[in-house]
């Protein structure tokens, strides 16, 4: 796993306090957005569970003893992280997995971008007109150097659905057989 290169903001203590001034806050949220996407890209994770984030080094910099938007009880404020996740959702980089918005999927590429990346790969490697299993796409030998290698299955399915909507692919999902046919 590649080491993440923390941006300067990560060691800047006020980065972990929600800024009251609107311009400064906009800069802060933008920096948080790109940091989260970078972190999830490097660590190849896909899911944020708001109940568990306080243990993640991303939101908790123990070196400077700062936790993202800490509340008086010392806990991380879930409204604050929701604020950032909503921002990510606005740009198509995240979406909630449940109605209570406790679990979120993070897309460091938007679903459309992922669809395009996978479709380009299929085109370049002659998979148009044939069927690939989802396992082959994210764990197979042909894709070890692809960006989508190791991609979360749920994200993969959602990305392929964007292709389906454009009639570029068809998902085959029944029982344990998960595959996709590219057109």
């Amino acid at each position: 796993m590649a080491e993440i290169e923390w941006p300067w903001q990560y060691s800047f203590p006020p980065f972990f306090t929600l800024q009251p001034h609107s311009d400064t806050r906009a800069k802060q949220l933008a920096a948080w957005k790109s940091l989260i996407l970078e972190y999830y890209r490097i660590t190849k994770q896909a899911i944020v569970d708001i109940r568990e984030v306080h243990s993640s080094p991303l939101f908790n910099n123990s070196a400077i003893n700062r936790i993202l938007f800490r509340q008086d009880n010392g806990k991380l404020s879930s409204e604050a992280i929701l604020l950032i996740l909503e921002e990510l959702a606005k740009s198509g980089n995240a979406s909630p997995l449940d109605k209570t918005k406790q679990r979120w999927l993070i897309y460091w590429h938007t679903l459309e971008e992922w669809g395009e990346i996978i479709y380009n790969w299929a085109q370049d490697n002659g998979f148009i007109g044939s069927v690939c299993t989802l396992f082959e796409l994210t764990q197979g030998e042909d894709t070890t150097h692809q960006e989508f290698y190791g991609l979360d299955t749920e994200v993969l399915i959602r990305a392929l659905k964007t292709l389906e909507a454009n009639k570029k692919a068809e998902l085959i999902l029944f029982d344990d057989n998960q595959g996709v046919k590219f057109f």
Partner: peptide
């Protein structure tokens, strides 16, 4: 207000 200073409540 001028965006020169950031608040740290921790």
């Amino acid at each position: 207000k001028e965006g020169l200073a950031w608040l740290d409540e921790q």
